[in-house]
């Protein structure tokens, strides 16, 4: 049993979901630091988004508001307290993630290269249901693109948030976004992109439960 190969392990995982302890121990899909930072980020993001919706409601950019049942803080003042508390968790966690992502080479190994041909081929495969999830340690091109893209959006939403928060002290940053009012729209659309990503991400994780398991117990 100890000589079981990776392909055997995947075969048994696919077939009966009965995996021997020796086999599971042999391959860590998501290291502990990734899992810890992932769930901390998920928690901080939910707090930021729900309180952000309440803040949006105080002066809506578009002709709609968010239902109070899905917002956090109860009123503008409460929402601001949540938003400016959770931002520390989000930023600190995000900085650690970026530092470790570069330092360990995870970004380079897991997310690069991203080629247009690869993305097109894997998108076609995904839409026709032929995309393989055999080896969860390797991301397909659609995953690479989305995960790299959402990291960029994550950086943008923090920077645009800082630009809105400190348009005098950080006025050069605010100017980069095209001024205070434009930065608000950038902040909003980054939120919309993250929410759209979350919907797809959670749906796919539920469709491929072993990927969810890997993000919880690592294997």
């Amino acid at each position: 049993m100890s000589s079981i190969t990776a392909s055997d392990q995947q075969a048994s995982a696919k077939g009966t979901a009965k995996v021997t302890p020796e086999a599971t121990r042999s391959k860590v899909i998501q290291p502990a630091w990734v899992r810890a930072l992932h769930w901390t980020n998920a928690f901080a993001m939910v707090l930021m988004i729900m309180s952000g919706w309440q803040i949006y409601n105080a002066s809506p950019l578009f002709g709609f508001t968010f239902s109070p049942s899905i917002t956090l803080g109860g009123w503008l003042g409460g929402a601001l307290l949540w938003h400016f508390a959770a931002m520390w968790l989000l930023m600190l966690n995000g900085l650690i993630y970026l530092a470790l992502g570069f330092a360990t080479g995870r970004f380079r190994k897991k997310l690069l290269p991203i080629t247009p041909e690869g993305v097109i081929a894997d998108t076609k495969a995904a839409l026709s249901g032929k995309l393989s999830h055999e080896d969860l340690t390797k991301y397909n091109y659609v995953q690479k693109l989305l995960y790299a893209g959402i990291i960029v959006v994550g950086i943008l939403i923090v920077l645009s948030g800082l630009a809105i928060w400190k348009p005098v002290q950080l006025q050069y940053l605010t100017a980069v976004f095209g001024g205070y009012d434009v930065a608000r729209y950038v902040h909003f659309f980054c939120m919309a992109a993250i929410v759209a990503f979350m919907v797809v991400h959670v749906a796919l994780a539920l469709l491929v439960p072993k990927s969810l398991r890997a993000m919880i117990i690592g294997r």
């Binding site: 049942s69 803080g73 109860g74 009123w75 003042g77 409460g78």
Partner: peptide, 11 residues
Amino acid sequence: RFISGGASLGA
């Protein structure tokens, strides 16, 4: 009211 409204507190 200060902290949270209805369902969001539950969540």
